[in-house]
């Protein structure tokens, strides 16, 4: 059986977009221990600049952000021809049936945008986060192999 587990030669870059310094520190510890390279942006504007400069392989996005909400940033990225394919994990402390996740769903629907690759609700277990990222990057790997093949 072919092992499809994605084993990057170079460390994958994850951009953590989160305004709570303690939570972003936690995500950084979890991800860096697994060999990812991380960058942290604490508001929407810094996040967009970081994406332009570092072109991350994956983004974790908190929906409630100062200076440009997470929903606005999400829409901007999905509409961008270069950044639209970056996988996004939306992280929220609200339940998925309430604000702001519902607002995001409405925006997705009205702008015909592809949904985030995953939705995670706080508190987030490290294992859950890592398996989600693994799944997303594996899928991406299969997809890329398909393109090459």
């Amino acid at each position: 059986m072919t092992d499809l587990t994605y084993k990057p030669i170079e460390a994958q870059k994850v951009l953590i977009i989160e305004d709570d310094p303690e939570f972003s520190y936690y995500l950084r510890v979890v991800l860096e221990d697994e060999g990812f390279r991380t960058m942290i942006a604490d508001d929407g504007i810094n996040a967009y600049n970081a994406i332009k400069t570092y072109l991350p392989d994956l983004i974790t996005l908190d929906l409630l952000l100062p200076n440009k909400t997470g929903i606005k940033l999400f829409t901007q990225l999905r509409k961008h021809n270069k950044f639209s394919s970056i996988p996004i994990i939306v992280i929220t402390s609200y339940s998925l049936n309430s604000y702001p996740a519902v607002d995001l769903k409405k925006t997705l629907y009205s702008n015909k945008l592809s949904p985030p690759e995953a939705f995670l609700e706080k508190p987030i277990e490290s294992k859950e986060l890592l398996s989600t990222i693994q799944r997303i990057l594996n899928n991406r790997n299969i997809y890329n192999m398909g393109l090459k093949g």
Partner: peptide, 24 residues
């Protein structure tokens, strides 16, 4: 009540994060 639950959930989430970091 719903905002309070959300607030407490956020705190728990961070305590959870803190305990993970201590454990590591």
């Amino acid at each position: 009540i719903s905002e309070m639950a959300h607030n407490i959930k956020n705190v728990i989430s961070l305590m959870n994060a803190g305990s993970y970091i201590v454990e590591k």
